[in-house]
Computed example of a mutant assay.
Amino acid sequence: MTTTVPLSILDLAPVVSGGTPAQALRETIATARHAERLGYHRYWLAEHHFARGVASAAPPVLIALVAAATERIRVGSGAVQTGHWTPVAIVEQFGTVDALHPGRVDLGLGRSGQRRAELAARAQRAGTAPPPPEERVVDGLLIPKPFDFSVLAGSPLLRAYGELLQQPGAETPDFADIVDDIAGLLAGTYRTPDGLPLHAVPGEGAGVELWILGSSGGQSAQVAGERGLPFAANYHVAPSAVLDAVNAYREAFKPSATLDEPYVVVSADVVVADDDAAARELAAAYPLWVRSIRSGEGAIPFPTADEVARHPWTDADRDLVADRVATQFTGAPGTVAERLDTLRRVTGADELLVTTITHDHAARLRSFELLAAEWGLSSP
């Protein structure tokens, strides 16, 4: 398959069972170099905290390390959790990276998952939550039943995480205001409520590309569209809402100095191997890893096959991960490329963002290599 749609990578710097964060970070840098050689367009780093199985806790630092280890590939965040940072801190951090690696830095912004869980729980308590839609297939693309994020709202661990990630008594501003402040600081047009100009150095005038990431048709998609910014929709995190997200973004879109028309990236979780059976074997630990996230304990180190075999699965466990497992694209290169092309076609994506986790690092590199060849990427 040869396509003109770019392919990019989202990396969590996964820590595997028996591994260390230092190993995970070294492997992330090696993977980024590999991705650049293969012709991937972007290399984005996620932001996760208090997760034993994820080493990507400080995206600006890791992005700087990846940028220094590569030459051409765009590097960025997928996404900075804005509830944990002030706008000026975000702009200064990314402005610092851009000062040394100009024209290569993407600043992806998102709302924190904690807020999403709280909003879902609030709607459920108020009786305003709509009944969940049933699983359906849209022109070949599976749209599963949605995951109920309200089940995470009562997690003591998540509550403790939220408290530690903010200063005592701090309140997160509205997401639209955060985006506007960041855009103003980058452009040099920021003013305090009293009209006092403030300048972020480094940051002001940086050639940072501003993105919004979202998992629903809610505020993130609306903000991205109204401000004419590029938008990334998360099929790999919330597959049930991907069409709502991209449609809401396009409906809200207004041309801007950044974009004349909407630009959409859609993510997918993939594992590619030489044949379908080998890919399924590599992906066998994925459900247990997702379960650790969905249960509120935080991502565990990516399990071995033996650890998966020992886990006593329950029906509740299977329900917890069903949508993520059903929408992971696993298989031989042609199998996965065909499913990715369906995702592109149904969502109208201008670019696809793939994330891959396997216990064996060599298998992960091989997965990206096989997919690049099948997708028709060309080395720079």
Rank of each mutant, 00 (worst) to 15 (best):
L7K: 09
L7Q: 11
S8E: 08
S8M: 09
L12P: 03
A22W: 00
A24P: 12
L25I: 14
I29G: 05
H34G: 08
R42P: 13
A46F: 01
E47I: 11
H48I: 06
H48G: 06
V54S: 14
A57M: 10
P60A: 06
P60S: 04
P60Q: 03
L62S: 11
T70A: 12
V75Q: 02
G76N: 07
S77A: 15
Q81E: 14
Q93L: 06
F94P: 11
L100N: 01
P102Y: 02
P102T: 04
R104I: 07
L107E: 05
R111Q: 14
Q114T: 10
R115W: 14
R115Y: 13
E118H: 02
A120V: 05
A120R: 08
A126Q: 14
P133I: 00
R136S: 15
R136C: 09
R136V: 09
F147C: 01
D148G: 07
G154N: 10
P168W: 07
G184I: 00
G188S: 06
Y190Q: 05
L196D: 11
H199G: 01
H199L: 09
A200T: 06
G205E: 05
A206N: 06
G217S: 06
Q219E: 15
L229C: 10
A233P: 08
Y235P: 04
V246P: 11
A248L: 07
R250D: 13
S256G: 12
A257I: 04
L259Y: 00
V266R: 04
V271K: 03
A278V: 05
V290Y: 06
S295N: 15
G296T: 11
D306T: 12
R310L: 02
P312I: 07
L320Y: 03
G331S: 06
P333R: 09
L343W: 01
E351Y: 03
R366W: 10
